[in-house]
Design a protein around this nucleic acid. Structure first.
Length: 545
RNA sequence: GCUGGGUUCGUAUAACGGUUAGUACUCAAGAUUCUCAAUCUUGCAAUAGGAGUUCGAUUCUCCUACCCAGUACCA
């Protein structure tokens, strides 16, 4: 049977999308694209009590950031589609807006004997549960207990009709058959069998808000939207038998989608699934984007923490899936090509924040100097640094550029200067924000000196030698290049048989505020003669000689 | 508790029933460098336990242990 591949990601807007949710969406997307099919977004908002404003927008924005773009369900403005069109034939894609659809399906089940009306109030059910718990038992609404509850199977017809008419807190429950083995197949886990005696009579539809529960809405919409594969989280595995039974009850077995249940993302240390708290506690984001809740509390996001979406997606893809070989770096297109459900791991994957950083470092190195310069400019501006594309315009504004393209006194730099800085420092950075920590002193003089290094290197005998090297630079008339400056300094120190390590470290301390950091020649070349002189003098006046 | 799912170095994972059980991250040491980082080299480190099937089990079966999920008029 030829069937178009159509998969869906169906989040409920009860809060920000968790990174585990992003992974589920990603695997759906990869599967759809690999098979030339459709990736659909459907919003499962059948629980009005748990609706969180902004959550739906967050989900779409997060997926867009990751490059997971739906074919159907969301329009090009990032809005969930409400009215049918050629591209979105199954609109609306919000279950709350599909409300009128579900009731008739629930009643069809009743007519065919697969479901029944239940009139037990929430209080009665709670009481039954409490009672069972008191006798160390668990109350389950099933084939046995249903006969002692208030429902259309136990009440006389007139009473049922009266209650349906006069009350509004009844529900429609699935009538789970007894002692039937449900035989299921999962694309990841293989064959699974469950006896219906262990299952309960799930509520499918609620009269109170006239809304279906997840189970009914899910099956009806997947059927109506012609979903071919359902790829979802492992938390749904226990309800798979019910879903199989529902397809059977509706007579939709022929077009029932195939199922794949993904393992969960686990916390880095200890046991249990990854939760919002872990991120706060261990210092990494669990959400793709920054989220602010109604109390004004924020949760970190990968985007705001400086991760590249490519790195985030690549990292997520490799959590619980592998291509079958040693490759680790994948673009989205390469993932589409390589992905396969049977390489998805059955066991839960512990998330490793270190690996996430490693991925970002790798992707940062893959960026061109131009891209990195563009990304760095805003950070520089926050620190009061001006970057000009056009050196001449800046000159008229009063800048006096050195050879490298910087005016350290006026804090104006050419874009080429920024480019050259990222070019030779990018192998030291994990995030774009790291550049400031690594190279701030190529833009502005150090504001303080690390005391430990001062104690170790800023000694009178070293300072005297540093000043002599300073004089050498002042009088330097060779090629003003990194190599030229570097060779001159080293040869000068070596020919005088001075302790090169001590001199260089003290020199760096004066220029950068720390004994460790970039190469002396790299610094001197960029800041220029004038600034080098100025920093030596500042160091002497601040630290003495 | 019950039902279902799961279990290879610390982490992510590889290995037609036959390998000295491989790779990456992390960590450690060495090389390199004026320092730090990067880089390169080397190293540490695993089949949960027990039966069985088999000439041979990480791989198949069963039992135990542990972990996870579900057990709602939530998804």
């Amino acid at each position: 049977m030829e069937r178009r591949t159509r998969v869906r990601f169906a989040p409920s807007p009860t809060g920000p999308l968790h990174m585990g949710g992003v992974r589920t969406a990603l695997y759906n997307y990869l599967y759809a694209k690999q098979n030339g099919g459709d990736f659909i977004i459907r919003i499962e908002d059948t629980d009005s009590n748990r609706f969180v404003p902004g959550a739906e927008e967050y989900i779409i924005e997060a997926l867009t950031w990751c490059g997971i773009i739906p074919d159907e369900g969301v329009d090009s403005n990032g809005m969930v589609v409400e009215t049918p069109s050629e591209r979105h034939p199954h609109a609306p894609y919000r279950q709350s807006q599909r409300k009128p659809i579900y009731r008739k399906y629930a009643e069809q089940l009743i007519e065919n004997g697969y479901a029944y009306y239940a009139f037990d109030s929430a209080e009665e059910l709670a009481e039954a549960r409490a009672k069972a718990e008191a006798s160390k038992d668990t109350f389950i609404y099933n084939q046995v207990s249903r006969m002692s509850m208030r429902n259309s199977l136990t009440l006389p017809k007139e009473e049922v009709d009266r209650l349906l008419e006069e009350t509004t807190d009844w529900t429609i429950r699935f009538k789970m058959p007894s002692d039937t083995v449900v035989k299921m197949d999962d694309l990841i886990r293989g064959h699974i069998e469950v006896n219906t005696d262990t299952l309960d009579d799930k509520v499918l539809w609620k009269r109170a808000d006239e809304l279906p529960t997840y189970h009914l809405a899910n099956i009806v919409d997947d059927h109506l939207m012609e979903i071919s594969e359902v790829i979802r989280g492992e938390e749904w595995l226990p309800s798979l038998p019910l879903h199989y039974m529902l397809y059977k009850a509706f007579g939709w077995e022929e077009t029932m989608p195939r199922f794949a249940h993904l393992s969960l993302l686990l916390k880095p240390i200890g046991n249990g699934k990854l939760s919002k708290r872990d991120g706060d506690k261990m210092g990494f984001p669990v959400f793709p984007l920054l989220w602010t809740n109604s109390e004004g509390e924020t949760s970190r996001g990968y985007r705001e923490d400086g991760y590249f979406p490519e790195a985030f997606v690549n990292m997520l893809a490799m959590l619980g899936w592998n291509p079958g070989d040693d490759r680790e770096m994948f673009t989205m297109d390469e993932l589409v090509e390589a992905f396969s459900l049977d390489k998805v791991q059955k066991a839960g994957a512990k998330f490793n924040p270190e690996k996430a950083k490693w991925y970002n470092r790798e992707y940062l190195r893959l960026k061109t100097d131009d891209e990195l310069a563009d990304l760095l400019v805003p950070t520089l501006e926050e620190h009061g640094i001006n970057v000009v594309d056009c050196p001449k315009c800046a000159l008229t504004a009063g800048a006096e550029f050195n050879v490298a393209g910087g005016d350290l006194q006026k804090h104006i730099f050419t874009r080429d200067y920024v480019k050259s800085v990222v070019s030779f420092t990018k192998e030291r950075a994990t995030f774009v924000a790291d550049f400031w920590d690594i190279a701030s002193y190529l833009f502005t003089a150090p504001k303080e000196y690390i005391q430990k290094d001062v104690d170790k290197f800023w000694k009178p005998e070293n300072v005297a030698l540093v000043m002599k090297v300073g004089d050498l630079i002042k009088a330097f008339d060779g090629d003003w290049t990194v190599e030229g400056v570097g060779t001159a300094i080293e040869e000068y120190i070596k020919s005088n048989e001075w302790p090169i390590g001590k001199v260089m470290n003290a020199f760096r301390l004066a220029l950068a505020g720390s004994a460790s950091g970039l190469g002396i020649a790299d610094i001197v070349y960029r800041i220029g003669k004038k600034e080098t002189r100025a920093r030596l003098e500042s160091a002497v006046s601040a630290l003495g000689n």
